[in-house]
Nucleic acid binder design. Structure first.
Lengths: 217, 217, 217, 217
DNA sequence: AATGAATGAGCATTCATTCAT
DNA sequence: TATGAATGAATGCTCATTCAT
């Protein structure tokens, strides 16, 4: 963990307690946003006193940033894992789509938090944490696309940077559509009520969409 | 205007005063988010007393919802205007992209507000307002795509609903990338610092991306 | 009143309410010192809501400074009134002593506050307010002493500045001895339990002490 | 040491550690006042755990009182040393003035603490500790003055108790003027900026002032 | 005996909402 | 109808004190 946001003491407590705090904070922040999130509630939810919380984190903002950091690292790990294999662009994209479906469902709060972050006043600070990941994935996408283009696997006339951008846009919206109430409702309009059972359809069609965009026919 | 969110009195005041209130509220809510937005500040900014504000709107939430409603209607008008022409799918998509670029720049606050809305807590209420528009656009996209598919203009194997969904996803992210700090920063990673001067490139490549996804070659 | 410390709104309320707030604040601050003084208690004591208090004063510190200012102005008025007459040094000193006895008893809280002030961390800020008075009285004392010296009424070998300093020191201690618990107890050691009935003795002997110090015999 | 304020355990630790605690406490209390003084900071400053501190002292108040006691004893020693010689009143006063100048500069914290003590709230408790010294010095001053008066060395018409009182008042103010920020600033008004280099002048004039008050001419 | 992590009551300050004028 | 002063509940943060190790 990046210790810019928490004090030494936070690493001295039991792994289990640390996790309880992180979980409670992610839940609270993702449900209410930064301003309305209640530190006292986080303390209660995690079975820790407010005083202790302030022993671990300088203030509310740092707790928030630490939490964001955790979320980012988790997502980064998932994506890098996939991207660093040496499979084809096509199969990597397919894997990412599936991974997003699984990871997002398992980390709904984290994804909500990510959406929350994009609205904050604090986005400059937040940006410092997230940019690391965004840079990493952007770079990966772009280079893989370039490689595929140079090998003649995908159309020549595409701008690798922008295609990577649109690709990532589709992925981000996919995440939100699985986690955030608003986007979940919105997806129902297109997919129907039982979105849960349509994972495969959603993935297949997205794959088709993306392949069409990228590949020669 | 939909009177679910404001009291009769709001329609009795001058158009100009009403607009001042709406503008001030949009600015305040989009800058600080729902919770941190300050009703007293909105009153000041719009040159109206708090007392009056509460004569026009039941409470903070209703003011927010009324504002959201305004934003939605505005966006809806832009989109419907474009979609209701009888041009080809391709040229309509092109027009939407350009329209988003122009409209978003002119209505940064509104777009931020839209992002804000997608955030928890109030999303159920918000959904009631937005669903109307989302349904409309979703329906439009889908039917146009179906039509094009039936006419053999686009690939046969696409699911019109889902392709419409991904299309709209790309549009939403494009809006945010032009208006919200976080997404603006993120776009820079892919496009470089001077995103302002790359409107055409961004539009062209997005067009290429979408055309590839949809069209036969 | 010096408006550096309160907001306009404070002058818009009724004289009576303003006085209640000032009295409550003086009492609270003089009893507990700056840090332990409780704003919520001041609000209650003065029959005003906390919210209102914060409408009148930016924060706790400004309320404190405003209060100090009031006290200083009051004392200043008393002293200047006496010093500006054109009586002899001797009779002016006598009048000051009597005035201190009366004023201090009538403004016990204010005098306690003055003692409190001398200990505060905040003494730089406080100093700005008080220095005005201290400068005024110091100047007055010094010039009167100089005048008396030049006229040959008092000993020639005295340094007017320093004699003014010691004179004022005696006056300050006299005030505290009438108002602050600690100094009251201490005075009893010298004067006996019923200090209350010994005003005259105390004044006479102090007069004798000072006259001896100043005057030729 | 008077064990009313500390537990047995405090005497069982090394002299050096004890001194560290006392020094840290004097510094903290004199810098911030009783309420804002931070026990945890005192623990850190003295390199002792909070737990231990509470093993030595029942609570914050008792630590404060113990500290006050130390300060009082120190001052008492200085004064008694001087007063118990059998020199003349005049030379004893002179010695006290010089001693105050030296001692105060060496024990600024202690003097600030003394001023702090005179403040409300705790003054009853404090009084119990200080009264011992005040009684001693008051008695000493008074008896010496009486003696001098009976011997015809000083004016007959003075009330020994009250003259002792005023004398002590001058001494107290001298101390504060050398140690406490507020009083230091105030002294500058009378003496000018470089008070540091005017020790002799200050002492000489005070001597003159007091001698005038006491002695026949 | 010594430690220092944990506790939670307490307080300054904000702001949605009300209501007398 | 309009005003804006008044309200007071709510919350981030601190620190004296405890107690398991």
């Amino acid at each position: 963990m990046n210790s810019d946001f928490f004090k030494e003491t936070f690493m001295k407590i039991s792994e289990e307690k640390r996790q309880r705090i992180i979980d409670a904070a992610i839940a609270e922040f993702s449900e209410h946003g930064f301003d309305s999130a209640n530190i006292n509630t986080i303390a209660q939810r995690s079975g820790v006193s407010v005083g202790s919380l302030y022993k671990y984190f300088e203030n509310k903002e740092n707790l928030f940033l630490a939490i964001v950091h955790v979320g980012v690292e988790k997502l980064k790990a998932v994506l890098e894992d996939i991207m660093k294999s040496d499979e084809s662009l096509e199969s990597r994209i397919e894997k990412i789509i599936k991974a997003i479906q699984v990871h997002t469902r398992e980390n709904v709060h984290l994804t909500k938090l990510y959406n929350e972050m994009t609205t904050e006043d604090r986005s400059n600070l937040v940006w410092k944490i997230v940019s690391d990941m965004e840079n990493a994935t952007a770079g990966l996408y772009t280079s893989i696309i370039k490689e595929a283009r140079d090998k003649g696997y995908v159309r020549e006339d595409l701008n690798a940077n922008l295609f990577a951008f649109y690709l990532d846009n589709l992925f981000i919206m996919l995440q939100f559509s699985y986690a955030c109430e608003y986007y979940k409702e919105r997806m129902k309009i297109f997919v129907g009520e039982d979105t849960l059972n349509k994972d495969e359809l959603i993935a297949d069609q997205l794959m088709k969409f993306i392949k069409g965009a990228f590949f020669l026919k």
